[in-house]
Amino acid sequence: MAAQMTDAHRRFLQVLMSHGIMEGSEARKLHRRCCEIHKVYYAHDKLDDFISTINSHLQPLFMQIRKGMSEGDGRAHYALVNLAETEITKMASDYTENELELFRKAMDLIILSENGFASSTEILNLADQLKTKKMKKKEAEQVLKVFVEDKWLSERNGEYTLHTRCIIEMEQYILSNYQDVARKCNICHSLAIQSQVCESCGIAMHLPCVRKYFRAQTEPRCPQCNDFWSCDIPGTSRMDSQSPSKTGRAEKSFILSPRRC
């Protein structure tokens, strides 16, 4: 039934795990290298088949290599994820309780924010309110750094958002735990943390999806309600990946109304 795994598959998996997440072109290079090292059949367009062989063996372990998109630049990424949805399982064995609580709080702020970012000040202010065990600011700063290193958060100019790896890993968790707030992108139907939202009907789109979608249109109109799309269309040239937009910071996190741009 399922194709046999070879050492090429195992090597691919080992390297992917040690990186946590890999960008598409890196993964393609690795695919080739693994096949060459172990002298197994290689075809440049067969990465997805190669991965699905690995996945068929990971399935009984509730793990999977999943493909996701970076919300900043729209590039494909691969990450090994844990399918157990009940808890932040993968993190649970790696962090202490108050570190996990800080992470959850940061995640709250990010998901409830206008633009998918929370400032370090906002997050650090919560450090001495942790129920499990309070943290000093300095300590919390250090923990945030570890979350960035471990690719759960990414940081740009003191603003934090969820790392692509985290989104790939926790998409289901977020969608079910933030049912009323978490949005799905109208174009690619995945979870959207950094997004633009239609002022009229409230649908959301990832920035790279917005860019791609409107590229073909003379006048930007919402794919859902056909109203004029009033957000700035992210530059058609190079886009500043993962950098928080300056707009929409006025409204504070706990307002659950649709994010406007």
């Binding site: 795994m5 050492d7 195992r10 090597r11 998996l13 080992q14 795990m17 090292i37 690995i54 063996h57 990971l58 372990l61």
Partner: peptide, 27 residues
């Protein structure tokens, strides 16, 4: 071993401490 090419090795038999090492031939 079968899926990840990793081996569970006991490096300290007195305190029962383990690490994972790769079983794959070094490239």
């Amino acid at each position: 071993q079968e899926v990840f090419g990793l081996q569970l090795v006991e490096i300290d038999t007195r305190h029962h401490i383990y690490i994972l090492t790769s079983n794959l031939p070094r490239a």
